[in-house]
Design a protein around this nucleic acid. Structure first.
Length: 723
DNA sequence: GTTTACCAGTTTTTT
DNA sequence: ACTGGTAAAC
C-alpha cells in the first residue's frame, strides 16, 4: 500500500485525524463513524509517511478482541509483522512491563496474575483469619472497595483511618490483603495497573527509556479509561506531542469499574496544545436509527456534544413489540429471525442484545427448539471453569509454592484426607509466623504435631507437588500440562464424576492441553526470552480468559449483552427486555449518574443496528424465580413516537394454558372480578376482564382494553372501577 | 473425614 | 435459577 491509498479511502474528517500533525489529539468519534479505521490508518500513516519503526509504536485497547483486530488490520494493510509493536489491553501491557522489570516492580519473578474469582476467595479467607463478621463486611463489598482504591492509585498506607468503624475495618482488610498478595506473589487486575504505574513513576531511568521508545501512543475507547490508566498514559506522554486518543463520551459504559468520563475533559486541561477532531458521519445505520439514538442521548447532561448523521437514507422505522411474557418475547424474536433467514438473510447478521446475561436463557431455549443455530457470548469463559482452574492451580503451585490461593484450592482436590481441622491449624500457624501455607505445612510436619493420618496425607501432597515439578521440568509446555492433569489424579476424579457433567470436564481438560500446545506454537520465538513459557501461559489464561465456545464458523444468531456488543454491528438487531428495572437496571432507577450511564448503554445498543432495529418488552416476566409486571423502559418513551412502529400482539400468542381447571376456578371465585366483567382504568379506559391469577396482594387481572389491547395488571396497583 | 441435603443470598456489566 | 456455605448423615 502506498501513501495516497491510506488517505483516499477516508472522508474529510477521518483524513484530518489520520494526517494530523504531532500534537496531543482527541478524536471524538461517534458510533459507526470509522473510529477503528482512523486508529489503524493513523498507525499505518506513521510507519509509511513518518518512517516510524513498528517497535516505537504503542497502541492500547480495552479488550483482547479489539487488540487482535487492530493487529490484523495493520498487518493486512502493510504486509509486515506487528510483533514488535506494543498493541494490547492496558492490563496486558502492564503485565508485560511488570514481567520484564519484575525486580524494579518489587515482584517475584514467578508472580502470578489472579482473576476476580481468586481475589474474592482470598478476601473471604482473610475475613475468616481476621475474625471479621462477613455479614457486616460482605466480601464482595470489600473486593469492590479494594479495587476502587487501587483504581484511584491509593495504597492502604496512604489512607487515613479516621472515625467510622466500618471504614477502619475495610482499610485493615485492604492492608492485610496487600500483605498476603505480596507474600504469595499474587497480583490482581487492578494491581497490574497500579504497580505498572508506580514502577514507571519511581524509576526515572526506566521511565525515560519507555518515553523515548514509544514515539507514538494511541488509545482506543479513551472514554473508558480509569484514573490509574490515564495517569500511566500521562507518565509516558506528558510534555510530548505524541498522544492520540479516540473516544466517544456517549459510549462510556464502564463507570462501574472505575472508568472516568472526566478523563476526556482532563485531557483538554493536561495537554494544552491539543486538537479535537469530531467524526460525526455515520456509515453504519439508517437515518431513523440514528435519529432515535440522537434523541435518546440528548437527554443526558454534560456531553461533549455531537450529532451523528448519514447520507444513507431513512430506512425502516424502528419496531416496538409488547410481549405478553418473556416466552412470548423469545418466540417473537426467533420467528422474526427465522423469517429473515428464510428470505435469504444471514443469521450471523442478526443479534439479540440484552442487559444481563441471565436473559439469554429464554432465547436459547426457543432457538434450540426451532433448531436455529446460535452463539452466546459471555458467561462462563473457558479458563474460568472449575476444572481448568484446578488444573492451573497445580501448575501454579509447582511454579511458586508460596501461592496460597492455589494451595488452598487444590490441597484437598481430589480429596486426600486433609480436612478442615488440619487446614485450620495450618492457617493459624501461617498467620502467626507470617509464613506461606506451604512453609507452614512443612513446619508442622517437622514438628510432628499432626496425627499420623493427617501427617501422611499432607506429606504425600507436598511430595506430589515437588515431584510434579521435578518430573516435568524438561517437558514441553503442553506435555507438562498433560502430565500434571494425569499425575494429580484430576483427570480420574472427573472421569468418575457421574452424568455428562464429568464428561465435559474431561473434555475441557483435554482442551486445556490443546490450548497449551497452541500457545507454545505461537510463542516460540518471542523477544521476552528470559521468561518461562509456563509463566506466560498462566498469565495468558487469566488475562485472556478465552471465549466460552470454539470458533464455530457456522452461520449463527449472535446473543450477547449490550456491553459486549460495543464495537460490533449487525444488520438486524433486537434489543430485548426493555423494561424499567431491567434496562435501566433497578439500581440505576434512583441515581441520576447511573441512569445516564444506562442511557449511554442504550445508545450503544441502538447504534449497533445497521438496517433494522426491534425493541421489545414483556408485560409479565419471571425474574429470580418470581413473577414481575414491569413497566416499559423509560428509554422507549424517550424515542420519538414517529420513529416507532408498534407491532400488535397476534391473537394466537403463546399464553400459558391455565394450569389446572380447579385452581383457576378457585382463584376466580375468590377474586373480586369475574370473567367478562367490564371495568374502567384511569389511563387505559374501558375493558373486559379475561382472566385472573394469584391471590391477595399478588392478584393480577388480564383485561382486554377497548383502545389499548390486552394487558395484565396488578390488582393492588391498578386502580380499577367496576363499570 | 467425606458426602449429601438444605438453606440463604444473590443476579449489571469485564480486564 | 444458581451458587456457595453450612449442618447433618454416612
Amino acid at each position: 500500500m502506498d501513501a495516497s491509498a491510506i488517505i483516499s479511502s477516508l472522508n474529510d474528517a477521518q483524513r484530518l485525524a489520520v494526517s494530523a500533525p504531532d500534537r496531543a489529539t482527541l478524536v471524538l468519534a461517534g458510533a459507526g463513524s470509522g473510529k477503528t479505521r482512523v486508529l489503524v490508518h493513523r498507525i499505518v500513516w506513521h510507519i509509511l509517511i513518518n518512517h516510524i519503526q513498528p517497535h516505537n509504536i504503542l497502541a492500547v485497547t480495552f479488550t483482547n478482541k479489539a487488540a487482535t483486530e487492530m493487529r490484523n488490520r495493520i498487518e493486512s494493510l502493510l504486509n509486515i509483522s506487528t510483533r514488535s509493536m506494543w498493541i494490547g489491553t492496558f492490563h496486558g501491557l502492564a503485565h508485560r512491563l511488570l514481567r520484564q522489570h519484575s525486580k524494579l516492580a518489587k515482584l517475584p519473578e514467578t508472580f502470578q496474575v489472579m482473576d476476580s474469582d481468586d481475589q474474592l476467595r482470598i478476601i473471604k479467607r482473610l475475613l475468616k483469619n481476621l475474625n471479621i463478621d462477613d455479614t457486616k463486611w460482605p466480601p464482595k463489598q470489600l473486593q469492590w472497595f479494594i479495587n476502587s482504591q487501587k483504581e484511584e492509585g491509593r495504597r492502604a498506607r496512604h489512607m487515613e483511618s479516621n472515625g467510622d468503624i466500618y471504614y477502619r475495618q475495610m482499610l485493615a482488610v485492604y492492608q492485610a490483603y496487600e500483605e498476603l498478595c505480596n507474600r504469595s506473589g499474587l497480583v490482581d487486575f487492578a494491581e497490574l495497573l497500579l504497580r505498572a504505574h508506580e514502577t514507571l513513576r519511581d524509576n526515572e531511568e526506566l521511565l525515560n527509556f519507555y518515553r523515548s521508545r514509544f514515539q507514538q501512543v494511541h488509545v482506543d475507547e479513551f472514554q473508558d479509561t480509569n484514573t490509574i490508566q490515564y495517569a500511566w498514559l500521562r507518565l509516558l506522554t506528558e510534555g510530548k506531542d505524541n498522544l492520540f486518543v479516540v473516544g466517544d463520551d456517549d459510549q462510556c459504559i464502564y463507570g462501574w469499574r472505575g472508568a472516568k468520563i472526566e478523563n476526556i475533559f482532563n485531557f483538554q486541561k493536561h495537554y494544552p496544545g491539543h486538537q479535537v477532531i469530531r467524526l460525526e458521519q455515520n456509515y453504519r445505520s439508517t437515518g431513523h436509527i440514528l435519529r432515535a439514538a440522537n434523541t435518546l442521548i440528548a437527554n443526558n447532561e454534560g456531553r461533549m456534544g455531537k450529532e451523528l448523521w448519514t447520507d444513507a437514507g431513512e430506512g425502516q422505522p424502528l419496531s416496538l413489540y409488547t410481549a405478553f411474557n418473556e416466552q412470548d418475547e423469545a418466540h417473537f424474536v426467533v420467528e422474526k429471525i427465522r423469517l429473515w433467514a428464510r428470505e435469504g438473510g444471514l443469521r450471523s447478521d442478526t443479534a439479540i442484545l440484552y442487559r444481563s446475561n441471565a436473559q439469554s436463557r429464554q432465547f436459547e431455549e426457543r432457538l434450540m427448539t426451532t433448531a436455529t443455530p446460535y452463539r452466546v457470548y459471555g458467561g462462563l469463559r473457558f479458563f474460568e471453569r472449575m476444572e481448568i482452574k484446578n488444573a492451573l492451580a497445580y501448575l501454579r503451585l509447582m511454579n511458586n509454592q508460596h501461592d496460597d490461593a492455589s494451595f488452598e484450592r487444590i490441597v484437598n482436590t481430589p480429596t486426600r484426607g486433609i480436612g478442615a481441622k488440619t487446614l485450620d491449624n495450618m492457617r493459624s500457624l501461617a498467620r502467626e509466623q507470617q509464613l506461606s501455607l506451604w512453609r507452614a505445612s512443612q513446619f508442622m510436619l517437622e514438628q510432628k504435631q499432626l496425627s499420623a493420618r493427617a501427617a501422611s496425607a499432607l506429606q504425600s501432597f507436598l511430595s506430589l507437588i515437588q515431584k510434579l515439578g521435578q518430573d516435568s521440568t524438561d517437558l514441553p509446555l503442553h506435555e507438562k500440562v498433560k502430565f500434571v492433569i494425569e499425575a494429580s489424579a484430576l483427570l480420574d476424579l472427573y472421569k468418575k464424576e457421574k452424568q455428562d457433567k464429568g464428561e465435559t470436564r474431561v473434555e475441557n481438560l483435554e482442551e486445556l492441553v490443546n490450548a497449551a500446545r497452541l500457545f507454545d506454537y505461537q510463542n516460540n520465538n518471542d523477544d521476552e526470552e528470559n521468561l518461562s513459557e509456563l509463566d506466560m501461559f498462566l498469565a495468558h489464561a487469566t488475562l485472556e480468559a478465552g471465549e466460552n465456545q470454539g470458533e464455530a464458523e457456522e452461520d449463527c444468531v449472535q446473543l450477547m449483552t449490550i456491553h459486549s456488543a460495543k464495537g460490533l454491528e449487525f444488520k438486524l438487531v433486537f434489543m430485548v427486555g426493555m423494561e424499567d428495572g431491567l434496562f435501566p437496571s433497578q439500581q440505576a432507577l434512583d441515581d441520576v449518574g447511573r441512569l445516564q450511564e444506562e442511557r449511554r448503554l442504550c445508545y450503544v445498543g441502538i447504534t449497533r443496528a445497521m438496517q433494522q432495529l426491534y425493541l421489545s418488552h414483556a408485560e409479565s416476566r419471571r425474574l429470580y424465580g418470581k413473577d414481575s409486571y414491569p413497566r416499559p423502559s423509560r428509554f422507549i418513551r424517550e424515542i420519538p413516537e414517529d420513529l416507532l412502529q408498534e407491532i400488535r400482539m397476534r391473537a394466537n400468542i403463546s399464553r400459558p394454558l391455565s394450569t389446572s381447571p380447579n385452581q383457576s376456578q378457585k382463584i376466580s371465585n375468590n377474586s373480586a372480578y369475574r370473567l367478562g366483567q367490564t371495568v374502567r382504568h384511569a389511563k387505559f379506559g374501558e375493558g373486559v376482564v379475561l382472566q385472573t391469577e394469584g391471590e391477595g396482594a399478588e392478584e393480577k387481572v388480564q383485561i382486554n382494553f377497548r383502545n389499548e389491547g390486552i394487558k395484565w395488571l396488578m390488582l393492588a396497583y391498578a386502580k380499577l372501577e367496576k363499570a
